[in-house]
Simulated scan of single mutants.
Amino acid sequence: MSAVAGAAHAEAATPVIDIRKLGKVYSPGSEAEVVALKGVDMRVFRGEFVAIMGPSGSGKSTLMNLIGCLDTPTSGSYHCDGVDVSTLDAEELAQLRLDKIGFVFQGFNLLPRMNALENVAMPLGYARVPPHERAQRAQEALAAVGLAERANHRPSELSGGQQQRVAIARALINRPPLLLADEPTGALDSKTGEEILALFKRLRDEDHTVVLITHDADVAAHADRTLVMRDGELHEQERGT
């Protein structure tokens, strides 16, 4: 095996998410102590579409915040695309989020005064990409989600499904290895939700890694595999159960 082929093989074999014995305790040692996560193990590889399910209070939001590097664990380890996040300071964590993770939320989180192109291009400003390249890459990202002709429309001029597509294009603009979607179809009607889930499948087929947080079993069924949070513990759900 050549050095180049070996490096490519090693990259393919490196999990995008590699979580070992992850624990999270809020207010430890106090009367208000809450054990949110208990020894969670989770590995997700490039090109997978994984759903994390669980009722309110199960720990899935805590797990999502840890995967997104928005919070730090009490115990255990998390490697994001090969990077041990525990070794990073606040500035390095912010850079990792920018480079490695695209976020998609239920509420779209678009800026109302910006058009679709400007909303999509916004992360590239933080990445210090030159303005002309920002516009070109944002246009390409909008085309990838089927919205090339809506580039000059503001969020108020777009349907809910179109706004979520803009949000997905924005999440993809830095070409991150991980797309983290929190209840992305929660504010959409069922037909539009199906279209968004079909888009996630297409992105998966294009070698993106999609992790979807949901409480809806019908939504989770679109993923390649489903992990279920129960009382702070993560379990793999067998298909057909």
Rank of each mutant, 00 (worst) to 15 (best):
F103C: 03
A127H: 07
L197W: 02
G193T: 08
G160I: 09
P28R: 04
A121T: 06
S27D: 14
E236Q: 04
I101A: 09
E118G: 04
V228G: 00
G161A: 12
M1P: 07
D224W: 12
E133R: 14
P155M: 08
A144Y: 01
E118I: 08
V210P: 09
M42P: 00
G161D: 11
G57Q: 03
R154S: 05
K100S: 09
G54E: 08
R128A: 15
A138F: 09
I101M: 09
S2R: 13
D89M: 01
A169R: 05
I101P: 12
V145P: 04
G125Q: 13
K60H: 11
P73Q: 14
L70T: 10
Q106A: 01
K21W: 00
L234S: 01
A167R: 00
L88N: 01
H215G: 09
M229N: 08
A167Q: 01
M114K: 10
Q237R: 15
P130S: 11
D84W: 02
E33T: 08
V210M: 13
L179H: 07
D89G: 03
G102C: 10
S61L: 09
S27F: 12
C69I: 14
V35Q: 12
K201C: 05
S75D: 13
T226Y: 11
F45T: 03
T14L: 08
L227P: 02
V4Q: 14
L117R: 14
G29W: 12
L179F: 12
L178M: 09
V85M: 03
S86R: 10
L70H: 06
A167N: 00
V166K: 04
Q237L: 14
D224G: 14
R204G: 06
V50E: 04
A94D: 12
L227R: 04
R97T: 05
D224F: 12
A217R: 15
S159G: 13
G39F: 01
K201W: 02
G240W: 01
N119P: 02
C69A: 14
P73K: 05
L142N: 05
D71C: 08
A181Y: 10
E195D: 15
S58F: 06
L70W: 08
A36G: 05
L199E: 08
R225M: 02
I67H: 11
D99H: 08
L227M: 15
P184M: 10
V104G: 09
M1D: 08
R204V: 08
S156F: 12
Q162V: 06
M53Q: 14
P131I: 05
D205N: 15
G29P: 10
I52D: 04
F45Y: 15
Y78Q: 02
L110E: 08
I173C: 06
G29M: 11
A3V: 14
I196W: 03
S27K: 11
E11S: 14
E206N: 11
E236N: 00
G57W: 03
A151C: 02
E118W: 06
E157I: 02
F45D: 04
V210R: 07
G82F: 05
